[in-house]
Design a protein around this nucleic acid. Sequence first.
DNA 1: TATTGCCGAACGAACGTTCGAACGGGTGCC
DNA 2: GGCACCCGTTCGAACGTTCGTTCGGCAATA
Lengths: 212, 212
Amino acid sequence: MPRAATLRQERTPRFDARLLSLLGVAARVFAADGYDRTSMRRIAAEAGMSLAGVYHYCASKQELLYDIQFHAFDSLVRGLRECTAKVVDPRERLRAAVRSHVRHFGDNMDALKVCARELHALEGDAYRDVHELRRAYFDAMHDIVRKLRPRSRSDRQSWLATANLFGMINWFYQWYDAGQAKVSLDDLADHQVSLFLDGYAAPRPRAKRGRA
Amino acid sequence: MPRAATLRQERTPRFDARLLSLLGVAARVFAADGYDRTSMRRIAAEAGMSLAGVYHYCASKQELLYDIQFHAFDSLVRGLRECTAKVVDPRERLRAAVRSHVRHFGDNMDALKVCARELHALEGDAYRDVHELRRAYFDAMHDIVRKLRPRSRSDRQSWLATANLFGMINWFYQWYDAGQAKVSLDDLADHQVSLFLDGYAAPRPRAKRGRA
DNA sequence: TATTGCCGAACGAACGTTCGAACGGGTGCC
DNA sequence: GGCACCCGTTCGAACGTTCGTTCGGCAATA
């Protein structure tokens, strides 16, 4: 399966728009019911077309899943680069990164659920492609975390911290309901950054960086 | 489906042992391939029995999943109570709780993966039962977190912190490989507790509790 | 007429589950 | 001891359903 096949070879604008809409429907149903429990017939029905009609826009069910995950991580990586490009202070870089992540997935929770749960449903090159993108995204975040404590010699500490940071900012798909949320996405991101940087027991003992 | 049906009505010791072994095989395969992608034929083969033989020990595929999740959370809740029973210091209570959690799932990663990913595969009463247990476990951990800052009026802060703590200590099934791990489970738990309590930017600014 | 968009109908495979029958070691009766 | 009988255990074979995918064809558009 070529990388992002359906997204690369350009068709008519109408075709691209319909495909994008189809991917949105597929992501929603995959997120709600799980990839394997979702039938192509269900996707077709929710997209308002026939079963065979779906196969006019994609080659297979797995390609739908691949496109969803590839697109999600691709725009995630690009968003991270843009958001942190002009920020130099390490703590503010982290805040920008987490805000980008949380906002991105909060606005598009379906894709996050699919990415978090259905990587293993991909096979062969599709798996490798998405896995590579995930790795690139992790490494970018790891770099940001590493610069928080530049004098730390061992990479293990920063690696572990990054893994746990991802735990925080990825797990929220399990409990965050964008519809009736009591906290905004930016507030959530700030909470997570402050938790990660200064901990819960001592929320603001450090005067080094003034955040009231 | 009655609560833990197959575990409650006691059969011969041989029966119970074989069922327990079957549940272990099922958890392993579910964790590796996902609940829906796993066929009963595959479970039967890995368990060394015939397809029909599996149905001698369980009523359905979903009951296998239910028993795995119920047993996991049940022993998790009980382990939490035991580990924190005699600890009074709030920080040490949290450490004991996280150690219990990480050790429990680190020794039994299959069950954690299944619990984290396959709750929605349960239906009806089975879903409600497991959901209830999860809620009870979360509430117990929330109580521990709350006592870290007793003067905090709002519950929202502690609730958010607990949710993010669960993100850390649950997400590690995504990257922790018990086989070739560079850190022990207890070290990982300590790292997570220290990260949660004091943050990454200031690893040990508090002299209150001395951990070199 | 040629191409694109789309559909109804079907195909082969795999699925979860069921059923009837066989095996094998106890138990009681002759 | 020999025998019938039961019950826990296991199995092969099948059932009905659902799945992903394909194919021939029909409108509409250019």
